[in-house]
Amino acid sequence: MTMTTAAAAAGQIGRARYGSISRGRRRALFWSYFFLILFVIFFLTPPVYMFITSLKSSAEISAATNPWWVYHPTLSNYIDLLTQNQFLIFFRNSAIVSICVVSITMVVSIFAAFALARMRFWGSATLATGVFLTYLIPESLLFIPLFKTFAYIHDKTGIELINHWWVLIILYPTLTVPFATWLMIGYFSSIPKELDEAALIDGAGYIQMLTRIFIPVAIPGIIAAMIFSFTVSWANFLYPLAFTTSADQLVLPVGIVTTLIRGDVYAWGQIMTGALLGAAPPLIIYAFLMDYYISGLTAGATKG
């Protein structure tokens, strides 16, 4: 209260002296809040609805009551899902795939970006553009040739790649590496050239230059690339849908949809619960790394 009164008093004085500026500022604030609230409503409605539904029993979901209110809250959906071995397998598969994909992506893209940004070699500029262009090819165009490739590998070597969850560890980097590399190229390019020259003179080799100068300086960019590749590998739907079929080989997004929808029977309560639980890890990671993520994206963009 004291703060609001103090602010109001300050506003009074301000208005007396600089009427138009304070009015302009208030109008700007009004509109920014207006759109922010609109935005929040638009984006928070689905998760809120999911949360409400996840607390209802199947009977209440199908009953013609107010969908925005829980009359008989229950945790049965959560208990059912978390005691089901299947759901935990999906979760485990997703977690292992994502962690491996993030690791592979970061190793490949950091080295690639360092080489493309700093070691001038024949065709490096073309290659850098090429890396980005591959990112523009939609995955829906890629999965059929990939399927054919896997079949060919099976014919020639006998190694079966289809219907194994771990094959996603090979597949997802095709989506994450190009963008992560492109992001890192931008970030590494923004590091002044004199910094590597100073390191070179101080006695660093290329590997030391990368590990002791580039990676620490580019941490925000690296975190941005990590979040990006984690999100892609956690949430991708098309590849696991196409390449895995057995229930024990599924990852979370496909697992929820294929096991909780039986024919035309939708286990809505459990679907919502599963989706909510599945969305939790990225949410937690975002919350922790948000500051880095933002500075990473903007620093890369403005070169500096």
Partner: peptide, 20 residues
């Protein structure tokens, strides 16, 4: 001979200090 083995030290116009 690569720079690191020339036993020289250089001071740059924009300082080139390691920011981290």
């Amino acid at each position: 001979v690569p720079p690191k083995d020339r036993d020289i030290a250089m001071v740059f116009q924009n300082y080139a200090l390691y920011p981290h």
